[in-house]
Write a protein that binds this DNA or RNA. Sequence first.
DNA 1: CTGAAAGCGCTAACAC
DNA 2: GTGTTAGCGCTTTCAG
Lengths: 351, 351
Amino acid sequence: MRRKIIRPTIKEVASMAGVSTQTVSRVINERPDVSRETRKRVQDVIEKLGYRPSALARSLIRRRSHTLGIVTAGLKYIGPNRTLNGITVAAEEAGYALLLKELSGFDADDNELIFQSLLSRHVDGIIWAVPEVGKNRDWINMLPGELDVPIVYLTMEPRENISVVSINNYLGGRLAMSHLLEQGYRHIGHISGPLDWWESRQRMKAWKDALEESGIGFYEHSWIEGNWSSSSGVQAAEKLFEQYADLDSILVANDQMALGVMQVAHQKGKRIPQDLGIVGFDDIPESAFFWPSLTTVHQDQSNLAKVAVEEIIKIIEAEWEESVPISPKSIMLETTLVVRDSSLRLASGNK
Amino acid sequence: MRRKIIRPTIKEVASMAGVSTQTVSRVINERPDVSRETRKRVQDVIEKLGYRPSALARSLIRRRSHTLGIVTAGLKYIGPNRTLNGITVAAEEAGYALLLKELSGFDADDNELIFQSLLSRHVDGIIWAVPEVGKNRDWINMLPGELDVPIVYLTMEPRENISVVSINNYLGGRLAMSHLLEQGYRHIGHISGPLDWWESRQRMKAWKDALEESGIGFYEHSWIEGNWSSSSGVQAAEKLFEQYADLDSILVANDQMALGVMQVAHQKGKRIPQDLGIVGFDDIPESAFFWPSLTTVHQDQSNLAKVAVEEIIKIIEAEWEESVPISPKSIMLETTLVVRDSSLRLASGNK
DNA sequence: CTGAAAGCGCTAACAC
DNA sequence: GTGTTAGCGCTTTCAG
């Protein structure tokens, strides 16, 4: 069945304007070498027909699609989601279209397929926005030499010879710990994310290092592994209360789990922050409205995305302009601590 | 600068296998009319070279890209985000790639541009997953006849002659109201979403109708307009407590605002659900861990997305197979009520 | 300034 | 079974 309204082609414009297709091409590409009258005539026809050049045909011949491949996973989680949001904004601004692929899991093994799918659509570059989990980065070493498009990796441990943009989870954790220690907490427990996640390990290491450096030391019974969900926060908190009697505060690896911890604390009649200090991680919008409001480590994922997009476009343009190729580098972005009620023991007299 | 690894073309495969490009084409398209030996020989070369056909070139000649254009807005909000997640899953399953565009606002007026951008990349269909806000649907009537690709609209009021998939917000609201009335609440306030949103109006209408039908009636002082954010929930709750002294419960138009309401209630020493019943809308994962856990209307956005993808693919295939064109229809999906502690006044003895 | 010819990577339609 | 010719919609030489 033929469609009702067909997009006109350059040919139709050309014949209707009584010129060759090259001339039309010159007009739509704003080349200077067209006479004023011809240009006007062609533009009128374009206007009248509502003609738009086919980006597809252009991509084919120019070997440049102005399209970025975005690979993500776990879009339903707040992190990847905020990152994607930032990517769409930055890409739009830079005039790039986005081809989106979501992996079915964080450790999916069909990378090869995803890759081919994007390459066959001639993306100019790929942003691999999948958190580093387990061995889901091993394939990087297997790459047969350099690929024909640049890749920028997000949220993973920096490695040699590839471009990585990450948030400094370790320093974020240290920020949180310094704050808890300043507030006089000494029995600081930890509820970590799944430890096959690089980010979880970084946050946990910060907790550990801070305890050791301050001379307090850490114990195996003072931490529990969660899975990012609020319900795992509930379970972890219950266990932690049980196995760590002196517990006076918890560094929780994300805000959702912190929410679960709060629920348990309320049920057990523990006052926050007097009996229990809590610091989360992520600064989800809701965290300011928890009861009490949650102190948390803010990471600016939309900036992360922006940096990644700028980075990959820089690489693409450099390749295209035959200038000195950009050598891969790692970029680490900093976090900030948002202090709210859940950890302010010293100032809690005013509650 | 030439890239290090160039994707081989069909020509190179052909010459290396000593056949014509046509034969290679036959092999990669699994046509029967190739001899076993030739096929084998070609496949070996393909394997060796790591050849993958260019989806771009194919799209051009087949006039079919197997790509869907997705237009969304407000990705940082939970709703659009969950919907997108569902779309990626369903599209992947159906073998379609996704070209993603995010509008800069809900009432953006650059629809024309977005459209051209997608069409110029030859998408086979478009899913317009932007909530209906203000007049951001007016352009539909301006469409110059039928477009050359099918569109399925999400989350909007059904209209004649177009395909729409929405969630029945009205019935969801009625569900919530019936529950509150059953629990013995009689002074039910409402905190709505922004009223230029269709969804907000639907939810509010449910509240109004339920009050009137039950003979209670509603008053202008018994509701406040919010803006979906938790902080607007805080402000709205404060005003509502002030202007509606008898208030014993609130239907809140989303969970984030309900969280804000809870914070205010705690501060004022009101017990939930005894002094104040609360029902939210959306069922965000955190809502089960609010204090107390939140009763809320669950909407299955990932199913919404799935239905939309299936629908548009159905239309695309029908057009392509020259069969009877599918006439546009509206699909309404139902919600369910998730009853938790925040509204269970009758059973709250066991708290 | 403008047009004719060639070709991006692939496939449809026809020969042989 | 397989190759040849033409062409998707556009741009890039290179003439004139």
